[in-house]
Design a protein around this nucleic acid. Structure first.
Lengths: 341, 341
DNA sequence: CTGAAAGCGCTAACAA
DNA sequence: TTGTTAGCGCTTTCAG
């Protein structure tokens, strides 16, 4: 069995050089080493089956070449594609990427924060559940946040312009003739994040001179279960067919669940009710009927996050960067078009 | 700024004890330390905002308390739920779990293997793309494989009894009156893995005295794109309505894509053609019509993998363990029931 | 119960 | 170009 008892010490001995020389050879840096030595060392390495202990190297250099991407839900393609895009970019630069799945749990997030704090990673890309910027900065690891925040906080950020994206959806509904638009989204994160959708909603109604009906605002989890909940609540509105004609959902997971649940209960989306989602995850085109939604540019977000992180690692003192990408309307068939009136 | 210049050395000084004592306090192990010292040390730690450098500790102890779960596709709920289940179990034991997403790329897998080799993880749970057991064992890290292999290889394994699961699906189709069953699956991994489905298919036909029609065997990628491909090929069968009446798909991703594509082209699954999938991912119940499939017990698989890994870490010499769980038929509406004849 | 001393395996000045 | 000498921050005998 090739026991990992072989350190540079053994290699040095076998190659007839010093540990330093071996070190120079195995750490890329192209330090000045003679051809002879390089050969001798590589030979010895081969011979002994030596494997560099990266932990030890990290202890000295303070570099691990590992990046942690923390996302709340790996199963949601929205997040996993961002992670993948970031991974692609980061690997080009020689970093390895691992994913931490928080599943929206504070406890898990905390756990990953502990990992990060113990200098196991050179950088962090994350969508934080707790959103405690102070804590993140206190980790002592370069970090870039994914997702927009209301307050202009003291950390690199990349995300979508959520309010504009929401209004895109709302405007489309409006143009299709809808005048009684309901909204369903989560209020998790309080005033900081998701309720940007709600704010956009209020602003939009105001702009169009539409009345705000509190009974048409739903707060549910952005999940399949949330969707079932939502439909139950929705159909419980007295005279709902008179009172509401469309529904904007905070993300596609919710919208898709709602579509399926509505259909199951005999209410046909795209016919009896309009539904618009947000994100444009792959499944959005597979529902029956296909979901009209607002696409968030996952690739761009992931890549941008990676690049910002890279430059932050290079220069910790560089000015803060915040990048917001616009959403894009994707028209499919879940919206009813009323005759112009 | 709380620079991480504080090591046990500083703490020791502030607490008026030696480094050793500090070490005894911060490493759980409950070494014998006086109440007084513990207090003093904890106080100093608090005061200085000391954070243990786990890398340094790992260098000595050879323990990182990190586990890497390598899966081929985070966006596929089948894999991400296995990962989650494993994570749940592993965290109970004090390990932190990170996910490596290989996206079916050899290059990525290799990259993660390099990480693993450099003793950054205490263990590995993985579904390998390359399937090179020798390589995995050579990593020098306890590892358990997910997914069944034909050959009884020299490594801990947990998975589903794929052949039995496949026959479950086939039998259901048969009982529904289907006598011309097509199969679509991937042949990636050659004789080792997925083609277990094909083997089960052949055996099943034989058992029932049904002829094997090579034109009814499709080899496609187990993806959305694969599904479109499949349907195109399928509908190109001359006189297909005469020649084939049902389709078994290698996994749900494929089956769902096929359902949607068939429907888009005016062929109604559950009516014009029977479709059965495998895995029972969450979306399987959201298709139109809902997909009949064979459920693989993701929770059990993930948890079992974690437990086997845990005991392997504890005792590297313990006998090999292989666990195969049975699949379970989930009847929904994608299968046509012909009148008994 | 506590401290001194010796590393874990590697890198980084500094000389030679 | 090479070797020597110190550590990185922590754990762990071994004495006391």
């Amino acid at each position: 069995m090739t026991k990992s008892k072989i350190s540079i010490h053994e290699v040095a001995e076998a190659a007839g050089v010093s540990k330093s020389t071996v070190s120079r050879v195995i750490s890329d840096k192209g330090g000045s080493v003679s051809r002879r030595s390089v050969l001798a060392v590589n030979n010895a390495i081969e011979q002994l089956g030596y494997k560099k202990n990266v932990m030890a190297a990290s202890l000295r250099t303070q570099k691990t070449y590992m990046i942690l991407v923390m996302i709340p839900d790996v199963a949601n393609p929205f997040w996993s594609e961002i992670a993948r895009a970031a991974q692609d970019r980061l690997e080009m630069e020689g970093y390895s990427v691992v994913i931490g799945s928080t599943d929206w749990h504070d406890a898990r997030e905390t756990r990953y924060f502990e990992l990060a704090r113990s200098s196991r990673f050179d950088g962090l890309i994350l969508n934080s559940v707790t959103d405690d910027i102070g804590l993140i900065k206190g980790l002592g690891v370069p970090a870039v946040l994914i997702g927009e925040r209301v307050a202009g906080q003291d950390i690199d950020t990349v995300g979508t312009d959520t309010m504009a994206a929401t209004k895109l959806a709302l405007q489309y509904l409006y143009e299709a003739g809808s005048r009684h638009i309901a909204i369903a989204t989560s209020d998790y994160g309080g005033e900081r994040y998701l309720s940007l959708r709600r704010r956009a909603y209020r602003e939009f109604l105001e702009t169009k001179g539409l009345a705000f009906d509190p009974g048409l605002s739903f707060s549910v989890r952005l999940s399949k279960e949330g969707g079932k909940d939502l439909v139950r609540q929705f159909l419980a509105i007295p005279d709902w067919r008179q009172r509401v004609d469309s529904l904007f959902c905070g993300n596609d997971i919710l919208a898709i669940a709602a579509i399926n649940e509505f259909r199951r209960l005999g209410v046909m989306p795209g016919k009896d009710i309009s539904i618009v989602g947000m994100d444009d995850i792959p499944d959005a085109s597979n529902t029956y009927p296909p979901l009209t939604t607002v696409r968030k540019p996952r690739q761009l977000i992931g890549t941008a996050a990676a690049e910002i992180l890279l430059s932050r690692i290079k220069d910790p003192e560089k000015p803060l960067e915040k990048r917001l990408f616009p959403g894009q309307l994707v028209v499919r068939e879940s919206v009813v078009h009323k005759g112009n009136k």
